[in-house]
């Protein structure tokens, strides 16, 4: 058991340390003066602080670019660095791992008018979803054979579950060709003119197949059906909601068709 005297000495030392660390933090992130904090030493401590200041910004800018490579390419080095600088100041990292830096970028650009084109926001949302699919939890996927073995009477009440890597996005712009062009540029090293963004409200699904993130654009009816599945609706309910969009007779066939594709792609977790 710690004595009262030791505990209070620990608390006093802790306050002193906290003040030193607060002053240091301000000196690094906000160019604070750090008066009295640093030893004069053999060289100018303010010049030496620049090493920490530079490291702080470049490390976080690099982490943001690693999570949003297509956005970084679309904006170019200078504009991306400017966006990163604003984001770094507005949304300091709170997570132990730098891997999550940029998790609030979609929200941030939604609140501040910082992008030169609104389609870029959809582009970055696609990138974050890809980034999350990359290291989302592992889970075995359901196969066609497994489902084929189900008794017919089990189907109406069957609730399928999506693989943990699956993310559904609603987009306002047709950003897929832009993402493809930017990604191709990154692979070939040759920069080509980007396709003009076209306004197009649609949905897109992102998931991981094996170790590789994938995405596919969806028609409205399929997207709605996938969302119903995500909400935990039964197979019967999926067919019923599809019937409201397509004609009632053909709806089950559509749902079965989509389901076959989802199974082939690995979107459905093992039942």
């Amino acid at each position: 058991m710690m004595s009262v005297a030791t505990a209070s000495a620990l608390a006093a030392g802790m306050t002193e340390l906290q003040e030193q660390q607060r002053a240091f933090r301000l000196a690094v992130v906000a160019d604070g003066a750090a008066a009295g904090l640093l030893a004069a030493g053999s060289s100018d401590p303010l010049r030496r602080l620049q090493i920490y200041r530079h490291a702080y910004r470049s490390r976080l800018t690099d982490a943001l670019a690693a999570n949003y490579p297509a956005l970084a390419r679309a904006l170019g080095d200078e504009a991306f660095a400017a966006l990163a600088a604003q984001y770094i100041d507005a949304r300091p990292s709170r997570k132990p791992s730098i891997r999550w830096f940029g998790d609030g970028l979609d929200d941030y650009v939604g609140q501040h008018d910082v992008l030169s084109h609104p389609a870029l926001r959809d582009l970055l949302r696609l990138e974050w979803a890809i980034c999350c699919a990359f290291d989302a939890a592992d889970a075995p996927v359901a196969t066609r054979d497994e489902l084929a073995r189900l008794a017919p009477e089990a189907w109406p009440t069957l609730r399928l579950e999506l693989h943990p890597s699956v993310c559904l996005l609603d987009l306002d712009w047709n950003v897929e060709p832009i993402w493809q062009a930017l990604t191709r540029d990154a692979e070939t090293g040759i920069e080509q003119a980007l396709p003009e963004p076209v306004e197009h409200r649609h949905s897109l699904v992102v998931w991981r197949e094996g170790l590789t993130p994938k995405w596919r654009s969806l028609e409205a009816a399929e997207a709605e059906c996938l969302r119903a599945l995500q909400r935990g609706e039964t197979f019967e309910e999926l067919c019923r909601s599809a019937a409201r969009r397509i004609n009632a007779e053909r709806a089950p066939a559509f749902v079965v068709g989509w389901l076959q594709r989802w199974l082939a792609d690995g979107l459905i977790a093992r039942v």
Partner: peptide
């Protein structure tokens, strides 16, 4: 880091008895 702001850097300690 401090005050839940992670600087993602390995920052030096003051070499004191309190530390």
């Amino acid at each position: 880091g401090v005050d839940h702001h992670n600087l993602h850097d390995l920052l030096p300690m003051p070499y004191t008895e309190a530390s």
